[in-house]
Amino acid sequence: MKVMVFVKATQDSETGAMPSEQLLTEMGQYNEELVRAGIMLAGEGLHPSSKGVRVHFSGRDRTVIQGPFTPAQELVAGYWLWEVDSLEEAIAWVKRCPNPMPGDSEIEIRPVFEAEDFGEALTPELREQEDRIRAQVETRSQE
């Protein structure tokens, strides 16, 4: 199963405070463990929401809203995409993670939808389209 692992933002991360050399070293070692274990598919840190935007949808209208956004604890400061055998395995890996922030912090784990989760709504044609898109993405990521 794939899971998205979100590092929740804090007041520090939202001010743009950069991690220390020690934390970067610890996270680098942790990420290497994830890669060696065959779990990590992707992962990145994110700039503060002050550098981002949101696009609000209302019918046919689209409105761009400039950051920053609040409250900080509802935002994402970074993420990993993992392939694990179970949610329990993901939890065990998160418990091994260095604290990603100088103070208290939170990491959220959410399963990624699999094709089977959509049932009959995912017709053979839609499944074929999905497979084609995934193959194209995979090809581009190898270039």
Rank of each mutant, 00 (worst) to 15 (best):
E89C: 04
L24P: 02
R62P: 01
H47I: 03
E74N: 11
G67V: 10
D12F: 01
E21M: 15
W93K: 12
M40N: 12
T70S: 13
A90F: 03
Q22V: 12
E33P: 03
H56E: 01
A77R: 00
A90K: 04
Q73P: 04
V76L: 13
K51V: 00
R54V: 02
E33S: 14
Y30G: 00
R36V: 08
L81R: 02
E14T: 02
I39F: 05
V35G: 05
E89G: 09
V35A: 10
V53F: 13
P68A: 11
Q66H: 12
Q22E: 15
R62M: 03
N31G: 11
E88T: 14
V35N: 03
V84Q: 02
V53I: 14
W93L: 13
L46E: 00
R36C: 00
L81F: 09
S20H: 10
V76D: 01
I65K: 09
F57T: 06
L81Y: 09
S49L: 02
G67P: 01
R54F: 00
E33M: 14
W93S: 05
Y30L: 09
S58T: 13
V35P: 05
A17N: 06
Y30D: 01
L41A: 07
H56D: 10
W82C: 07
T70A: 15
F57K: 07
Y79Q: 06
Y79F: 15
L81C: 10
V53T: 14
P68W: 09
L87G: 09
M27S: 06
M18C: 05
G45E: 02
R36K: 15
W93C: 07
R60K: 15
P19Q: 06
L81G: 06
S86W: 08
A72N: 13
R36S: 12
E14Q: 11
A90D: 06
D61M: 07
A72S: 14
K51C: 04
V94L: 05
Q11S: 02
M18T: 09
Q29A: 15
A77N: 02
E33F: 04
Q73I: 15
G45R: 10
T15W: 03
H56P: 03
G67A: 10
V55H: 02
R54L: 03
T25A: 14
S58E: 07
A77V: 01
Y30H: 11
A77W: 02
F69S: 00
V64F: 05
K51P: 00
W80V: 02
V53E: 14
Q66W: 01
V55T: 11
G78E: 04
E89Q: 15
P71M: 11
P71C: 09
S13E: 03
G52T: 08
H47A: 14
T63F: 00
F69Q: 07
G38D: 06
G38W: 05
E14Y: 01
Q11V: 07
T25E: 06
L46Q: 09
W82S: 06
D61G: 02
D12H: 08
E14A: 02
E21K: 11
R62H: 04
Q29L: 14
T25K: 15
S86L: 10
